[in-house]
Amino acid sequence: MASTVIGAGITIEGEVSSDEEVVVQGTIRGKLEAREAVTIEAGGTVEADITAGPLSVAGNVTGNITSSDRVDLQAGARVVGNVKATRITIADGAQFKGNVDMDV
């Protein structure tokens, strides 16, 4: 089961923390902390610092990203912020402004 889904019409202003997978179709402003995978779908908006396991972005992120695993910026993604991760992919068509720290 996709455990936590912030639906398309939903806005959360505050703090989201989770031990399970999180899917964002709506909006989060504040802070997002997850131990497992986070997926920000097209149309989803996160204006928050993100700490996560594997992170996949097809929507909008404004904030710094820290991942214990990989970060995938997919086509259509728009990310403004720094990314710290062990692996990162930026797809053709993804917009990204920020620094990458791969801890080498």
Binding site: M1, A2, S3, T4, V5, I6, G7, A8, G9, I10, T11, I12, E13, G14, E15, V16, S17, S18, D19, E20, E21, V22, Q25, G26, G30
Partner: peptide, 20 residues
């Protein structure tokens, strides 16, 4: 809309607004 859920391992602190 029907899929919107805060799972058993998740915690939200703040304001939740919206349609659905």
């Amino acid at each position: 809309h029907a899929a919107a859920a805060i799972g058993p391992g998740s915690r939200v602190r703040g304001r939740v607004t919206g349609d659905g």
